[in-house]
Simulated assay, not measured.
Amino acid sequence: MRPHPGATERRIAWHFTLLTFAIAGVFSGGLIVAGRFGYAVSNVVSTVPEFLANVPFSIYILSPAIASYVVLRAHRRVTGPLQWIRLVFVLRGRPAGALLAVAALLMYFTIHLCISGPSATALPWTMFLLSLPGNLVIGGMEEAGWMSALQPELDRRWGFVRSSLVVGVIWLLWHVPLFFIPGTNHASGVIDFGMFAVQVLTFRFLYGAIFRAGGGNGVLLCILTHTVFNAASFTLGIPPTSWPGTLAANAAVLALALTAAALFPRSGAAVRR
């Protein structure tokens, strides 16, 4: 008896989500417990012990990418690491995806800066370039999981708005341990949870729209957008800092994402497997 159409995709989505939270729960839980004994995430890694201390945190952050590979291989969608890398890092796609990503980032930061004002913690732009590799691993590579094994499948099944909301809530819950791990900006109180939730939910819509608009390289564009967003936020010093700036910037990004999704009604391309 042949499986019902979409049954495999549903299993992939469920297995991916469960494995992601299992990995994240084990490592983030361990880090929270270790925090009671003096552990803290190191923002500046200059020694081998500091690097090793950050490995468990890196595994937590990379849990979506790790789960994507394990689940897609278990379901025979990829045969090994090289095929998974080729699936995620597709270079060719529609220019519309890249244009949308650039427009959204420029819109977000311009509006936020105009309303919230320049930050006292802003850094030289050289730091933006220097922080890109770190933000690719600790941030950008999340999308290698969310956008290869979860959101596009739900988009095709449920539509853009519902899938973006569901994955946005999942993504927000996955971030919650950051507010309890010593050494993170979240745990230090720099980031307000309410403003962070608004931003997370909005950008889930944006990544879904970028995937639709980009086509074949949708996953890679989401990785790059996430990386640049984190690096620019770090450089400009504007994590969510004020409700007016947060609401205005995210409202504009959300409107842009909804418009783009309407122009590209189908998920850009089925993730190549």
Rank of each mutant, 00 (worst) to 15 (best):
Q83N: 07
G25K: 08
I170G: 11
V161C: 10
V44P: 08
Y60M: 10
A40I: 05
H226Q: 12
G145P: 05
R77I: 08
I238H: 00
G159F: 10
R36F: 10
P124L: 14
I191W: 03
G97L: 09
H175I: 10
T227P: 04
T202K: 01
I210P: 02
F211T: 03
G29M: 15
P81N: 01
L113D: 01
H112W: 02
G159K: 12
F234D: 00
V161A: 13
T20V: 14
V200D: 01
L52M: 14
G134I: 02
A213N: 10
G218A: 15
M141I: 01
Q151E: 09
W243P: 03
F211M: 10
S164T: 14
R204S: 15
P182M: 08
I59R: 00
L247I: 12
A262Y: 13
I111M: 14
S28G: 06
F205R: 08
G80I: 02
F51T: 09
A149M: 14
P124K: 10
A74I: 05
A270Y: 14
Y60S: 03
W84D: 05
C222Y: 07
T184P: 10
I12K: 06
V137P: 04
N135M: 03
Q151N: 08
G194M: 05
G214Y: 00
G30L: 07
A187T: 06
S42G: 11
H75I: 10
I138Q: 06
P124Y: 15
A103Q: 13
L136H: 06
A232C: 07
G208W: 04
